[in-house]
Design a protein around this nucleic acid. Structure first.
Lengths: 333, 333
DNA sequence: ATACTGTGTGTAACCGGTTACACAAGAGAA
DNA sequence: TTCTCTTGTGTAACCGGTTACACACAGTAT
């Protein structure tokens, strides 16, 4: 591999001049520039990014820390992050934490030692204190950590209200909720939204809320038990699409027809929700846009550009598909 | 951030000694080591990975280049790669190429400039020549590039034979194939396997093979046209699960019952195939194992450890689920 | 004639590690 | 006593860029 000194020798100039040509700063005579460019071409010279990083204390790399890329929400997000980062000249190193604090801290340490310029993280275990110690920009996605950390999320409560409200609107009389993990903020917000919409209905019971842990298997089991306990349920709002798909499968097992006897709505808008039969009605997050937005935000923070807003709360959108049906019994009994 | 010189000063020794303690090489007196460790602790010193990289010409980082992380096969693979890399002390930087040659070359260049120690790539556009020029270990996953490049794939042809053979076995009389892109090796191998199994059947027609391009939408359309042209078809082997799911949806649109009137089998074993109704019968690749295997292989090459085999062809496994049914009309008409 | 400004280029320090090499002291062998 | 080997430590060069600073020269203002 040719170095900048080889190029300098070949072009008959100093390394400083070559560096000036490379970075187009300082004064360089046009003739000299031509000679340098020619030498670069001849030697097929590529500047060494590591050496540059060492001096500049920046690496044009960002870290992306997610719980599990196997969770279909995150690949779609990762795709957007990578696309946007690439456009802005950054690489992405990616890390799975499995919601494990030690793994997360370990990764942050390693990333820091490698001079990553910033980090995008989906976490609930991270504290503001630790982030401050990192001394590099950190932005949070999908989950609020603290007010100090720039964040991109969606209107979870509003989305949940939309979901529950929609089920009421299409005529459901008894609406249950399969909730996400108690330690994850967005799960709690979705419960809140559900409660605001149906909590004061005469038929409402606390036992209409059941734990699904954002996982399909758990949700199937939870739905089976729920429907056994409460056969009167005719609508389910699952806090994410994966659980909604689980609910559909459970209904299928019990011979309940979806949407005729049981309407099911999810949350997230992952592409898997379009692959099922019946296709899933869902509250879609603009996942790609969220990825673009956090990355834009992070890069601005890295490059110390002005940021208008460090807390973005994006809108969600109801996408009506086959797992619910509008005409059903409209207007109540 | 404390540097090695700060630590040396604090401990009253030279930087060489600190470095020896850090890397446990050379002779260091036990008392000295204690002093250094204490200084490291006091200053909360973390060695700078970039400086180390510059001298050692290695970064403990590998590149993972895939066409599109949005394709559900790749997150599962990426997860395995990242897990394994992490265990061995490597980070993963990941890149989406969209099968675009320029993007791919650009990424390889950038990765090289950052001293990544090796690359895992799923590509069909890469040439052996280019790989040689990189001068770092490159391993190929999911697709054969050339004989010189170490590769991890599955037995595609054998898997395809299994799929078609299984459909025959359960009593299908007319078996069609939705194939993947013509420029992707594994797609062609799957066609070959299909042909070996049914190509000489009296009923076989070339028009039973249709293009699906590994994409759900395309596959839906292809299936609709296929079943219109050939309503006699009672079995479909799709070259990947995503297309198989598309075929199921198409059948549903046409009112054809799966599996009673039409049996459908996929290929890949992505987790999405378990989420559908009916659940998809498929030829499962050991995706996680493949990721583990390529990463192990790459790390061995990087660390110049002996490698027993640079061409791994893993077995696939038939997973029977609901989109096919064994009892149907067994033993022919 | 003098001072100042803009252009153009080179030298060497610097980023923060690693390690070749030199050197010293003590133990054991000849 | 002298030589050799092992242990232990420090100095400084090195990895390959970037840039502060010095210097030189031409043109222009005073």
């Amino acid at each position: 591999m040719a170095t900048i000194r080889d190029v300098a020798k070949q072009a008959g100039v100093s390394v400083a001049t070559v560096s000036r040509v490379l970075n187009s700063n300082g004064y360089v005579n046009n003739e000299t520039k031509k000679k340098v460019d020619e030498a670069i071409r001849q030697l097929n010279y590529k500047p060494n990014a590591v050496a540059r990083s060492l001096y500049k204390k920046t690496s044009k790399t960002i870290g992306l820390i997610v719980p599990d890329i196997g969770n279909p929400f995150f690949p779609e997000l990762a795709r957007a992050v990578e696309d946007t980062a690439h456009k802005k000249g950054y690489n992405v190193v990616f890390c799975n934490t499995d919601e494990n604090v030690e793994k997360e801290e370990h990764y942050l340490e390693v990333l820091l030692q490698k001079y990553v310029d910033g980090v995008i993280i989906a976490s609930n275990t991270l504290t503001a204190q630790k982030v401050k110690e990192l001394n590099i920009p950190v932005v949070s996605i999908d989950r609020k950590i603290t007010a100090e950390i720039p964040t991109v999320v969606v209107k979870n409560k509003q989305g949940a209200r939309k979901a529950a409200g929609y089920l009421k609107e299409i005529g459901c009389q008894r609406i249950a909720h399969i909730r996400g993990p108690h330690h994850i903020d967005n799960a709690n917000e979705r419960v809140d939204g559900y409660l605001e919409e149906v909590g004061s209905e005469p038929w409402f019971k606390q036992s209409y809320i059941t734990d699904g842990n954002y996982v399909m298997k758990t949700a199937i089991q939870a739905t089976l038990e729920l429907l056994e306990r409460h056969p009167e349920i005719d609508g389910i709002f699952a806090a994410n699409d994966v659980m909604a798909i689980g609910a559909v499968k459970a209904a299928y097992q019990l011979g309940k027809k979806v949407p005729e006897e049981l309407a099911i709505i999810g949350f997230d808008g992952i592409s898997m929700a379009e692959a099922t039969t019946p296709e899933l009605t869902t509250i879609a997050q603009p996942i790609y846009d969220m990825g673009t937005a956090v990355t834009d935000l992070l890069v601005k923070l890295i490059e110390k550009k002005p940021v208008e807003n460090t807390f973005l709360e994006l809108d969600v959108e109801l996408i009506e598909r086959e797992s619910t049906r509008k005409q059903k019994n409209k207007g109540g009994r």
